[in-house]
């Protein structure tokens, strides 16, 4: 290594000579605290993943149950489609988490930052494409199920004589508008989070590599 200027050498000695101003804790206490935090960390991750999977499986289970009880083949097929859509969403989330899970902390700094950037980009991508991988499959499944129920429900409830084509069209339009409005809000919220939180963080990480 080339010789440094004496001033920097003096700074180095000063830097390395500083001592800890606060009292030491006993090694055994420190180890217990670290192990305890590590266990809590593992539990938090496990609980988060379990909660997410259980919520998804519960919704999928409800749809599967609906499919089982549904009158006739078309409602059964509709509810089965909804079950598949929920399972697709759960799998997609699980795969994203596996692919960009915890990054090793003992990587060289530049590599660690690049890994963090990849993780942030994947999160932002997931939020920005929520329309295609989350909303569309769920909306598709529910629509198939609802549409398949109409032919069975309308005659069963004795509504057939009162329903006009215009009334059905108005109800369909109203439901479509309502679902679109909710979807629009969800998409905008996700986009807002990606834009205001993840993009600045990614830019900041990229600056570290310059």
């Amino acid at each position: 290594m080339p010789a440094l200027d004496p001033e920097f050498d003096a700074w180095g000695s000063l830097w390395r000579g500083q001592s800890r101003p606060i009292p030491h804790e006993r090694s055994e206490e420190m180890l217990e605290k670290v192990k305890d935090r590590s266990r809590r960390f593992d539990r938090t991750i496990l609980w988060r993943d379990a909660r997410e999977a259980l919520a998804g499986l519960f919704v999928a289970g409800v749809w599967a149950w609906v499919s089982w009880l549904a009158p006739g083949w078309w409602p059964k097929i509709g509810a089965a489609a909804a079950t598949s859509c929920v399972l697709y969403v759960v799998t997609r989330l699980w795969r994203a988490r596996r692919r960009h899970g915890p990054v090793r902390e003992d990587l060289p700094l530049a590599e660690r930052v690049r890994a963090e950037i990849a993780k942030v980009e994947a999160q932002a991508d997931l939020l920005r494409t929520v329309r295609s991988w989350y909303m569309t499959p769920l909306a598709l499944g529910s629509t198939i199920w609802l549409a398949s129920l109409v032919p069975a429900i309308v005659p069963a409830m004795g509504l057939a004589p009162h329903l006009t084509a215009a009334g059905i069209a108005a109800a369909v339009c109203f439901s479509g508008l309502l679902f679109s409005a909710v979807g629009w809000v969800v998409v905008r919220l996700n986009d807002y989070v990606a834009r205001t939180q993840l993009d600045p963080y990614r830019e900041e990480l990229q600056r570290l590599l310059q």
Binding site: M1, L4, F8, W11, G12, R16, L107, P108, L109, A110
Partner: peptide, 17 residues
């Protein structure tokens, strides 16, 4: 890292530069 008296080669290894 330099104040910790690491050589350029060691710093390169830590940072990946």
């Amino acid at each position: 890292l330099q104040l910790e008296d690491l050589s350029y080669a060691q710093i390169a290894e830590v940072t990946g530069l």
